[in-house]
Structures are given as C-alpha cells and as structure tokens.
Design a protein around this nucleic acid. Structure first.
Lengths: 111, 111
DNA sequence: CAGGATCCTTCGTGATACTG
DNA sequence: CAGTATCACGAAGGATCCTG
C-alpha cells in the first residue's frame, strides 16, 4: 500500500497533503498575507463555508497553517502559514510558473 | 465555479492536473527515464493496472506525457514526459525538497 | 463573525475478469 | 505485454440549516 510510504517518500507525502482540491489555493492566499475566515471566503468565492472549514482544519492538523483565535466579540480568527507552510513557498512559485506555461499551451491548442 | 478558472489561474489549473493520486509519482518516475507500462507498474506496486491505465490516459490527454506505441509482437508501449512534462521538473524538485522537510517535521513530532 | 451538524451526491480509486 | 470493460465502494466535496 502506498500508505506505507507516507512519511517516507517525499512525493507520496506531499501528494497526500496537497490532495485537497483547495489546499493549493489556500496556501497561495495565505502566502500573500494572513487572512480571516471571511476574507478567505471572499477570495475563494466558489468554496462553501463548510468546505472551507474542513480544509482549514485539515491544513491546521497537518501543520501547514496556524489558526489564531482572538478572544473577543465579535469573534476573530486569523489564519497564517506555519513555518512549514512558509517553506512551501518555492513549490508555490514553481507551480505558478509552470501553471502559467501550461495555460499558454492550452491557448495554443485551442486556437 | 472554480471551473471557470481552469486555464486562467495557474494554481487552479495545476491543481486540476495534479489531482490524481498518482500523477506526481508517475511524473517523478518518468522524469528519471522513459518507461514501459509494466515497468511503471513494478515501480508503483500498489497501483492496479486499471488505475494506472486511467492515470496514464488522463496525463496523456492533458499533454503531460507522451505515449509511444511500437507496432510489434509482443506489444510495446513507452511513456515519456512531453515538453510540458519536462518543464515540470522544477516543481518536482521543489516538492521533493519540501516533502523531505515535512517528513523530518513528522519525525520530530512523533518522537 | 466564524463556525458546527447533517445529509447527500459525485468522483476517484480499486477489484476482477477478459482480450488482441 | 498492454491493455479494455464492469462493477462497487468510500471519501471528498458541497448544500442547507442552525448557533454562540
């Protein structure tokens, strides 16, 4: 089973963590700045509250992001990248670049 | 819908393409050398034929890899990275590095 | 504002059997 | 050797309603 390779093979491990359909997008948003729950929702309009909540919890459990709760009324919760999340930046950059190239490729195809 | 961003946002686009549970692994394998169907299967033991076939077809359709059929008996089919696939290398490298760091993080946690 | 709790559907993944 | 064809399942994702 590939599960055995989680925590062993870098690729299997990374894939597991990035599995979420939105993980990459959230990582990107948070790499720009720390954000509150509603800010994220506005940045990712096609994502429902429930899903966003689950994703954030997963990412928090995995140590990718940090959840900071300010004990006040109205409630305020901020999400930011953890140390590990920050180190993810190179991947983000590489993906952005490659994604852009891929989009160009798509355009060339359709025209 | 986020579908609208496919072909527009690099991250959405990349995430779609890397969605498959095995895409990253296959990309890595093929980045080492072109491989035949059975070679890939041996390299990824926990992956069934059916699934591998589907993944390869998807990746081929997406232009990530190239499928070369040698018309002979017994059949021989080789898979290799396309131009676009080659350009994916930086992402692969970044992921490998980050994945390794993450594994270290996991170890530190459990101990 | 930032969720929690449910319910439901879709899609990816896998098992198995068969083929040129 | 390199697939194709079916069937089935589980989990991720989403819709909706409710709360401190």
């Amino acid at each position: 089973m590939e599960k055995d390779l989680y925590g062993i093979c870098p690729y299997v491990t990374a894939q597991k963590l990035l599995t979420g359909k939105w993980t990459l997008l959230i990582m990107y948003q948070l790499s720009l700045k720390k954000m509150r729950f509603n800010e994220l929702q506005r940045a990712l309009p096609s994502l429902t509250q429930a899903t966003l909540t689950k994703q954030l919890r997963m990412m928090s459990d995995n140590g990718l992001i940090i959840r900071t709760v300010y004990d006040q009324i109205p409630p305020k919760v901020e999400y930011s990248l953890s140390e590990l999340g920050e180190r993810f930046q190179p991947v983000l950059n590489a993906i952005q670049e490659w994604g852009t190239e891929y989009i160009d490729f798509l355009k060339g195809k359709s025209s």
